[in-house]
Amino acid sequence: MFQYILKRIIEMIPLLLVISILSFLFIHMIPGDPARLVAGKDATLEDVNRVSIELGLDQPIWKQYISFMGNLFQGDLGTSLKTGLPVSTMFADRFMPSVYLTLLSMGWAVVIGLIIGTLSAVFKNKWPDHLGMVTAVSGISLPGFWLGLILIQIFSVQLGWFPTGGSEGWKSYVLPSITLGAGIMSMLARFTRSSLLETLKADFIRTGRAKGLKESSVLTKHALRNSLIPVVTIAGLQFGFLLGGSVVVETVFSFPGMGRLLIDSIAFRDYPVIQSALLLFSVEFILVNLIVDILYSTLNPKIQYES
């Protein structure tokens, strides 16, 4: 297993190289010149050119790429064109709030999603199922910004329980994580339900009952574990997406996360920040995938990862 993980991590390197080249190319294809933005509105052409040379933007793209990667390997993510701060410092402020928000959102979404999905499957076509699926459908169809605004209106403005924004203290995480997790919870609830219903039809479930097992043991020991296998994939995928930050939720709650940093940086053509952020997201995504694969193999003994 350890060897398998090591192998997967080594395999990440060429993948990340390709991603870095592609993202570098795409970023530089966005029309607009950061030098002009840095130099300011009234700058002359000479000013702009001077800034451009200072920032190294006059160099051919491949040279810029090589110097970016060279710095990266020395642990230097570069300096933001907009703020002049090291990119790593900017990330340090933004990254952890995003990670916490993601973990919180995923955490409750997984727990509640599994519970609703399981109850819906067990009480198929009875009221818990109807209630669960109405909840799930609403969770999927409510737009995030709308849910966020409603939550702010009720719990921040009217009741004053939670702040309207920011990232100070656990209270400021509550509403954003509800908003962010709602869709995922709904998706997981529906996946769990359909997966569990499918598993409950399996022959080995009948075997379990024929042994004289209690219905609750049939469900927990035999059905759930088998149904979780596809659910884990969905959850992992969503987790990967969430780590990239959510622009909508971060905007509504003025939450200082990675999503807004990326959008702001794109608006400013802040190349070093965009480039590093994209690479960071890729690393996260690949790592989450690796974790999902490992989870998968523990859930499903048929899958043996050989190194």
């Binding site: 009948r206 075997t207 088998n226 003994p301």
Partner: peptide, 16 residues
């Protein structure tokens, strides 16, 4: 009363 079924492939739980 015990029972065995036709499908030995699917009558056992694959993850246990």
């Amino acid at each position: 009363i015990a029972m065995i079924f036709q499908e030995p492939m699917t009558s056992l739980n694959p993850v246990m």
